[in-house]
Nucleic acid binder design. Sequence first.
DNA 1: CGGAGACTTGAGCGCTTTCAAATGTGGTGG
DNA 2: CCACCACATTTGAAAGCGCTCAAGTCTCCG
Lengths: 231, 231
Amino acid sequence: MKIDRAVLKSLPLFDRMTDADLDAMVEHAVSRRVAQGDAVFEQGAPAKSFFLLLHGRLKVTQVTADGQQIIVRVVHPGDLFGFARALQRSDYPGTAIAAAESLTLSWPTDLWPQFVEQNPRLAVTAMQTIGQRLEEAHTRIREMSTEEVERRVAHAVLRLSKQAGKQEGDGIRIDFPISRQDIAEMTGTTLHTVSRILSAWEAKGLVEGGRQKLLVCDYRKLVILADGGRE
Amino acid sequence: MKIDRAVLKSLPLFDRMTDADLDAMVEHAVSRRVAQGDAVFEQGAPAKSFFLLLHGRLKVTQVTADGQQIIVRVVHPGDLFGFARALQRSDYPGTAIAAAESLTLSWPTDLWPQFVEQNPRLAVTAMQTIGQRLEEAHTRIREMSTEEVERRVAHAVLRLSKQAGKQEGDGIRIDFPISRQDIAEMTGTTLHTVSRILSAWEAKGLVEGGRQKLLVCDYRKLVILADGGRE
DNA sequence: CGGAGACTTGAGCGCTTTCAAATGTGGTGG
DNA sequence: CCACCACATTTGAAAGCGCTCAAGTCTCCG
């Protein structure tokens, strides 16, 4: 498969890598097209590869013993994902599903140590990435501990509009199909409550809904809502 | 300060380090005694050092904008903590408070890259540590999303008894002072609810309480409770 | 022995969930 | 091109978990 080197170079992960090192990495990479709804890997499966998302959008989910599902995070283009092995795991802790048609690049997990050795910067970047992810997780824990549902949903929507937002007219469009159920699974509530909240927001002109669609109309008011309404 | 090399060698973090490398690290270390209730570092302060807990127990907390506090994690002897800088942060994301009299070892953050370079294994271990912490965070998110309070408290208590449990008679003693408030801040509930739950458990003979004390009497029943009561 | 802080416990209420059913939307096959 | 089906969404009503408010008790420490 032919991958444009320039595309990779534009990613923070690779921007300081030499052409030679980059080529060495790309040489071992396998690219794959993933249709909407298909899984890249499944929870509990042996972690044979690690991945880079080139295009599209993935949801990483976990299922509890009694069948409830939560969305652990959303993977955006340019993100590394599924590098469980670097964290000393032999299997994937979650399932990665394409929320939209996606394109991934993957490498055998065994090659990770080798890449890191050749390119120490990769290790630093990976560390940074995980650090960020840890911080996000803590933020989410803090929100779930101290905020009521509406504020949590507001934070989730704001986060999405920052990470996957596309200017559209006078608003910001969440640039991939997302359902109320998805938002519920990201905030620890039910789709019913999310639906009610979004309906209320729509009545106030904060957002505009639609089947698996969301448009943020009044970003500022949403921020105020997320921060507790005061100030 | 004189640190016994053997003590460090017994920690997974250092067990494969050569004596020379170990000495080089210890040479730059500063040890410090922290009294119960005192802070090792505070949220938002510049991250000048990273730490290792030799003895005692710390609570890492975060305070929200509106003053609510949550416990992000508990630091146990042998744990690295406060290495925000390795994750590309310039300040500490939380406050570390001694839950019991503690002993820490610290190094200037600037030395981190140098240590890592001298000893690649340190980087791997650190990565592993953060990976574990990320997983813990996800577990907690999953619990907060899907479980009701009693199960969350059960999980928290089980975790504590695994990480800080000491056999005592026919039960497991949580080996440091911990209040209902603390447990509430770890599970996202109020001290009132925790108190009620523990009282109920005590009536059923699952635990024994006391002022900042907790003894798990029936570990198995608690596990069943945490897993949803069935099976 | 007094006081501060930890813990317990009751009562009432409100936010969310649960249960239930209707409505809307997009895709598909005839 | 249209009817139909699967699935997303909305909305109402009722129940309940856990929080808030409010005392009161207990325990350790000085």
